[in-house]
Design a protein around this nucleic acid. Structure first.
Lengths: 339, 339
DNA sequence: AAACCTTGTCGAAGCGCTTCGACAACATAT
DNA sequence: ATATGTTGTCGAAGCGCTTCGACAAGGTTT
């Protein structure tokens, strides 16, 4: 391993000078800088991360805590994770991947050991047990997702309330008066992950204002669960003409079932999905959807985190405005059945 | 921050003793050990990662390089990543998340800086540009995926050759004589990621032995691409009764199209997918499939890596045997049409 | 009782870097 | 000409840990 001292010797300067060339924290003359940089090149020098961390008490690493579960929104999580890793690199940070498994202990371990300078938590629950720890430390952190109480925390999330409202508006405008929400799996609600409820709240209150009736049914993904759920919905509200699907893995089953039942999309029934664009465009019907902006969420989270690390930036809740893209799965409500 | 010196003082021993208690590298008397452990507890001591890395030249971090792309097999990648992170923790290692973006530079950076002790590479191409670097360093590494030349490398992968053969056998046993392979997107082949070709090779050679004709068509995911592909297949081989699908996002479109065309699965047409079990069980037909054992791949990769880190273990290619699970999408070939 | 292990502990050196204060060397203001 | 900055460089002190050799204290073997 080439050390800084060797570079210094090679360039004929002191170690501290090399260090200052690297960090830019003091001015260096052109000549010296060039000689040093050349030596670094020639020797193939890479600063030792451990030594650096020890001396500066900064590791240049941010921790990213991803949920252990792989039962929902996996592509979204992955996309966020990759966006986080990619943007963090542009700020000179690396990303440490933690799984939810260790829970609060991981937070303690990472803060305690100085392994990471800051952390990003995904899949935050309404009353997450990691939050007190975050509040009690001075290590900067950003949450992706919105807990119940946000004082003293920085959060990034899609504005799911507005997302719900947007869906309601779009369907209402098209004349739908009876809509059904295919929600996440019951487990998601029990886990209190917030976003599902916030979507629903937004959708319900806007629907009320617009005179639209809403039926909400949680639904496991998959074909079988969807069959049961759909049957129940049409039992209770035969006049349902609009669907909002929040569960990615319910999308295809729903479309297939509607086809089977001879209900045409969008002529007889309209469907809006809340999902990544990729899912919306690859489905068997090109879906009108509200995108989950995974990349942007990851990017924003990193930006906020860096701001905190640099002393700028404060606690704030950054809600990303939802955008609805009209595709081929929504259309005017059919005239009420003659029956 | 509590330091080791403070713990030592609190426990009334020297710093080195505390260190030995922590590492277990020398024997310590019961009494001392207990006093030290108690002090650690009381003071809430966490060893400083940087100092540790500097002094021991081991960071206890393994790097995981994931593909930047999110166009294929994302859930598989995520599951592998999580399995890697989880198993690494059981060995006391943390995981640094690198994206493919930086390419070979990331390898250089990480090896050079001692940021990580070892690395795992995913999505390895046949002639991957990172391989020479890995061969040229003494940092242990494990590949998930199989490059063209494996000398001096340790690899983990599903035995895709055997996977293809298994599919051929299953369909042949059921009496199918004309089968079609719905392959990955053309881009995957151009990228030379190997696994797609290996599956095909295995399938073709076994088919030949069994007297089964094979038609192979790459296919982008999605409904539209599948429509075109399927039409071409039935044009060229109207008697096709078996399908092997390797592209996750082609599964649902294929099933939907077959339904539309009045071809019943499995009565008229059999379908085997190469995909994670979750996809197979959640599809609109419960799919006979060869599972992609993401978890096991991640776990095995870590095991091999740890073995190398501990001086045990050598270069080897660990191919995981495929397992075919029969579900509801395959059945006996129909009697040849009377025409 | 001498000689030899074994076990448990300590002190000190050093890992490779950052950063502070000091200080030449030179430019600018008085 | 002296006082006052500026700029560029250096030396040294540490950051918190691991690890090596040294060495008491006690146990075993002759």
């Amino acid at each position: 391993m080439v050390t800084l001292a060797e570079v210094a010797q090679h360039a004929g300067v002191s170690a501290s000078t090399v260090s200052y060339v690297l960090s830019g924290k003091r001015s260096i003359s052109m000549g010296t800088r060039q000689r040093v940089e050349q030596s670094i090149q020639q020797l193939g020098y890479h600063p030792n991360a451990g030594a650096r961390a020890l001396a500066s008490s900064r590791s240049n690493i941010v921790a990213l805590m991803v949920p252990l579960r792989t039962d929902m929104y996996v592509p979204v999580m992955m996309e966020i994770a990759i966006a986080v890793a990619t943007s963090a690199r542009t700020y000179g940070y690396d990303v440490l991947l933690l799984t939810g498994e260790e829970g609060p202990d991981a937070v303690r371990r990472v803060t305690g050991s100085g392994l990471a300078d800051a952390m990003i938590l995904m899949d935050v629950e309404l009353d997450d047990e990691r939050l007190p720890l975050l509040r009690g430390t001075d290590q900067p952190s950003v949450l992706i997702g919105l807990p119940a109480a946000t004082e003293g925390l920085t959060c990034v999330d899609l504005d799911f309330g507005a997302t719900g409202a947007l869906c309601a508006e779009h369907l209402a405008e098209l004349g739908h008066r009876d809509i059904a929400v295919i929600g996440e799996a019951p487990a998601v609600y029990e886990r209190h992950t917030g976003f599902a409820e916030r979507t629903l709240d937004g959708l319900r209150s806007r629907s009320r204002e617009l005179g639209v009736r809403v039926l909400h049914r949680p639904c496991e993904g998959g074909f079988d669960a969807m069959t049961v759920t759909l049957a129940r919905i049409f039992d209770e509200r035969p006049g349902t003409t609009g669907f909002v699907v929040q569960n990615e893995s319910a999308v295809e089953p729903l479309l297939a079932l509607l086809r089977q039942q001879g209900r045409a999309v969008p002529e007889d029934v309209s469907v809006i999905a809340v999902c990544p664009d990729q899912v919306a465009t690859q489905a068997s019907v090109r879906l009108t959807s509200v995108a989950i902006p995974a990349q942007e969420m990851g990017r924003r989270a990193v930006e906020l985190l860096i701001a905190k690390l640099e002393g700028r930036g404060s606690d704030e809740v950054a809600l990303i405005s939802p955008e609805l893209t009209v595709r081929a799965s929504t259309g005017p409500a059919p005239a009420p059945a003659a029956s």
